[in-house]
Every structure is written in structure tokens, then in C-alpha cells.
């Protein structure tokens, strides 16, 4: 089944690194989008929702935690799976982000296996 992916990170280089790692994990997407912060991601999701979002937490303008909350208010994003990607590894924060509507959490540094493990269940 064709799938679409959006990568949200304020670093264009990190977006490329994440894309490279997703490819190395063996997962394939027929459409990929990028956004430089949470606000840009919300605007793009309003116009054209995706199946899976990989989202940084610490970003200027709108952090990933706020992006998750706003995305969950969008009627066309109710089934979108949102996976956070961050250096933050405190369990309290992870629990809080998952409770606010995220579907998964990947800590940096990451491996292709981590992406495979987190994303594969949403690919069928």
C-alpha cells in the first residue's frame, strides 16, 4: 500500500540524515515532504495530509510537542502516525509526548533498525 512521509526538523541536514536512515531501514514511501518547524508542518498537513510524520521536538517557532497537539485537532490527520525524533530521553517527557497524541518515540543517536522497529507496524 503506498505510503507518504513528512520529516519535520529545523536542520535541513538532519532532514537529509533522517531520510537516508529511513531508506537504509528498507522502508519505502511513494511521497515524502519536509518542514522546517511545527508551524510549517501544520500548514502542509492542512493542505495535504501524510500517513507518517517524523518530528523533532526542539525547534524554533513551534516545537514538536505543540505540533502534535495541533495536528491532532486537524480532521484530516486523525489517522496520521506521528513519531518523535529527539535527543531528549527523559521518560517523563516521552510519556507526556505519547499522552498528547504521538504514536512513537525515537531517540538520537538512531540506527536504521530503530526506524524499522517504530515505523514498520504502521506500513501495512
Amino acid at each position: 500500500m503506498p505510503k507518504s512521509l513528512m520529516i519535520v526538523d529545523d536542520s535541513a541536514t538532519m532532514r537529509k540524515i533522517i531520510m537516508r536512515t529511513v531508506r537504509m531501514s528498507g522502508l519505502e514511501f511513494d511521497r515524502t515532504e519536509e518542514a522546517g518547524n511545527g508551524a510549517e508542518a501544520i500548514e502542509k498537513l492542512k493542505a495535504s495530509p501524510v500517513d507518517i510524520v517524523l518530528c523533532d521536538i526542539n525547534m524554533p517557532e513551534m516545537p514538536g510537542t505543540e505540533m502534535v497537539k495541533q495536528a491532532r485537532q486537524l480532521p484530516n490527520c486523525q489517522n496520521t502516525k506521528i513519531i518523535m525524533v529527539s535527543t531528549e530521553s527523559a521518560q517523563d517527557l516521552i510519556n507526556s509526548v505519547l499522552a498528547s497524541g504521538a504514536n512513537g518515540y525515537i531517540t538520537k543517536p538512531f540506527t536504521p533498525e530503530k526506524f524499522q522497529e517504530q515505523l514498520a507496524p504502521f506500513m501495512s
Partner: peptide, 17 residues
């Protein structure tokens, strides 16, 4: 510059952990 910044970010994240 982005790559080195990300290295600093990830190393600090790991130290924090």
C-alpha cells in the same frame, strides 16, 4: 556546520541521559 551542530546536540543529549 549543521552536522557539527547535530553532533554537539546528540553528544549533549547522551551526556544528559
Amino acid at each position: 556546520c549543521d552536522a557539527v551542530g547535530e553532533v554537539a546536540n546528540m553528544v549533549m543529549g547522551s551526556i544528559k541521559s
